[in-house]
Design a protein around this nucleic acid. Structure first.
Length: 114
DNA sequence: ATCCTGACGCGCC
DNA sequence: AGGCGCGCCAGGA
């Protein structure tokens, strides 16, 4: 198989909540981030932030910038404990990260409302 | 259908 | 600040 990704462990139904979540996450542009809650809301379930986390955990899709999904308030977390990696990735996109907190979170938040 | 799992969020201590 | 407890939810066993 040409690409390791060709292997589809679990075909996610495009109409399922997980499908919506993946779709939304994929739309987060580089240099921008969204909280699990934001993604949940954009996927149609404002209270399903926790479920979103579970979905990210199982996302084996490299086309999904899961590192751009952070905790409420711009806190780094999840990423299978690979917090340092997540931080490096975000920084490489121009996002300022201090410790486990994103600076000017409101400014890099997406869809940067208001 | 029920139970269990958590990359969550928020109020409190 | 940091840590704890409880509520909310979709997905898999």
């Amino acid at each position: 198989m040409p690409n390791a990704e060709s292997r589809t462990p679990k075909a996610v139904s495009p109409q399922s909540f997980a499908g919506a979540v993946l779709r939304v996450t994929r739309r987060i542009p580089p240099g921008r981030v969204a909280t699990y809650g934001d993604v949940a809301a954009m996927a149609g379930r404002p209270r399903a932030s926790r479920a979103v986390g579970n979905i990210m955990r199982g996302c084996g899709d490299p086309t999904v910038p899961c590192h751009r999904v952070v905790g409420a308030g711009g806190v780094l977390g999840g990423y299978g404990g690979e917090e340092a990696l997540k931080r490096a990735l975000l920084r490489s996109e121009g996002i300022i990260v201090v410790g486990r907190r994103i600076r000017a979170f409101a400014a890099v938040r997406w869809p940067a409302r208001a």
